[in-house]
Design a protein around this nucleic acid. Sequence first.
DNA 1: ACAAAAGTGTTAAACTTACACCCATGC
DNA 2: GCATGGGTGTAAGTTTAACACTTTTGT
Lengths: 302, 302
Amino acid sequence: MKNYEMSREEKDFLKDYDISRYDRPSLTADMAVFAILTAEDATEYRKDPRKQLGVLMIRRGTFPYKDCYALPGGFARKDESIEETAFRELKEETSLDSAFLEPFGMFSKPGRDPRGWIISQGFLALVDAEKYQIRAGSDAWEAKWFYIDVEQEEMKKHVRKDSAEICTRYCLKLERDGEVLSALVEERRTFQSHHETVVYEVLEDDGFAFDHAEIIIRAYLALRDRTEQSGRIVFDLMPEFFTLNTLQEAHEIILGEKLLTPNFRRKMAPYVIETDAMVTGAGHRPAKLFRRNLEAFYNMGN
Amino acid sequence: MKNYEMSREEKDFLKDYDISRYDRPSLTADMAVFAILTAEDATEYRKDPRKQLGVLMIRRGTFPYKDCYALPGGFARKDESIEETAFRELKEETSLDSAFLEPFGMFSKPGRDPRGWIISQGFLALVDAEKYQIRAGSDAWEAKWFYIDVEQEEMKKHVRKDSAEICTRYCLKLERDGEVLSALVEERRTFQSHHETVVYEVLEDDGFAFDHAEIIIRAYLALRDRTEQSGRIVFDLMPEFFTLNTLQEAHEIILGEKLLTPNFRRKMAPYVIETDAMVTGAGHRPAKLFRRNLEAFYNMGN
DNA sequence: ACAAAAGTGTTAAACTTACACCCATGC
DNA sequence: GCATGGGTGTAAGTTTAACACTTTTGT
């Protein structure tokens, strides 16, 4: 873009260029904000409170999907990139001003929004829930953490000579204060002449606005994928100082399986630095607090 | 979406809803189509022709960026998803009707297109070049394979107490029939309070339309990443029957390094099936032809 | 014969997995 | 004392990396 000189002719062309001749979509950013929440169970003697994955939802105060829950998000402006839209809207709607944000998918199925042609860039966002107390909603909206639970069910494998289809159903359930949202999302993974296409479809939906049930499932799968791959992403759910067991818990919650502590610690050792601080008063041996080892993060790439 | 019943009130709201009140971008899909090309060197006695990574470019016949080269791509229509746009445009502009297509990024920097607010979904596309002979262009455009070469230069690491920045410069060079396009793209990877943001900037540009130099670099990096991770993606560059050495060559070209043959073969063994066919007449020992083992591909996920 | 590429076997080092075990605290 | 979570060591199994070597062709 630097060395390109526009000719007189080209300038004239652009002056007369009317972009509104063509149909255009509206563009939005939707953020799936995850955090590790402590369940509000009765805390038994000496027993640590159970933790769970949470996702941030906003109750819609206006049509369409009034009173349904939607992901935080909003319309892009002309003078900003879509990443800037995501940051701005996150701050406006939830007062979160710093978070890990990563695009994970574009949602553009015709008919996904009853207001018209509206496409959305989905962002995966991770925050430390303790640090950010979500401001309660104004008249227009109300932000609220839901506990999220995803049940995965392998449906069927159609295998033929030169193609195959694998269907998986994800049963999504959000819950908080007696309020329950649920949905059933099907994933069809098709292999044809050896390459793969993935399609998602919402089969049932109770309480979600737009196609946000699908967006949440795909954000959750993206989070799980990234956690399996490197585990680095999980640090974005942690506060500045944390115990290795908290970190392990976060991994276990996302992956949905127990990990072996000694192995987990060895794997994480390069990414953390021990501090002198301890967590005491928990009814059992105090835990050392660690912090991120920044060097390990940026030395990865070589 | 299934179980949601619209109220009378909501229907009225939508009837009066005028989406054109807000600014809207135009939406395009741009495809970085890669293939392994055989260099047109003089073929020496008994020596296999050198191969190289190629990318498909289209010479622009109209303003803006007339006579520059752009990625194949085009505007989205109201009644299709962005994936459908990508397939349709690829077919229209290059006659490629089957390819691996994967979204790898959204490009929405303000000012990236002089015609106005135009955003683009980038797709990585891989094809077997031998199978698809690109049709020569009409008056409006001309599709052409370029040899692509990317030189990577680590610039600097600014490391401070709680943040770090790593700059890398990618020197992009496309070449074919004496025609040369080149660009210099800088990547700034910033670690702040332990999470990472990546920004790209085109520093120099000679012959590319729009921000397509950046799109090509990011597509290339996506391809390299996916190759490092699983290697499965490389099969999309292969014809139906191929030798293991061809496959290894493709890996080496993408990764930019030599691999050890015995190890490579062991790694690929589960994904390929031996056939009876052979490649003869090459002036050296004939090579067995293999084909993909479909089962291995879809069994990955469990 | 021999250059070029095709293809195999063998070993050491690195990493992963599994399990057994001890430690420190608050009630 | 003891339940609960915090924390370490060690051995077996698996994967990866490196290298040395044999085979088969066309001219």
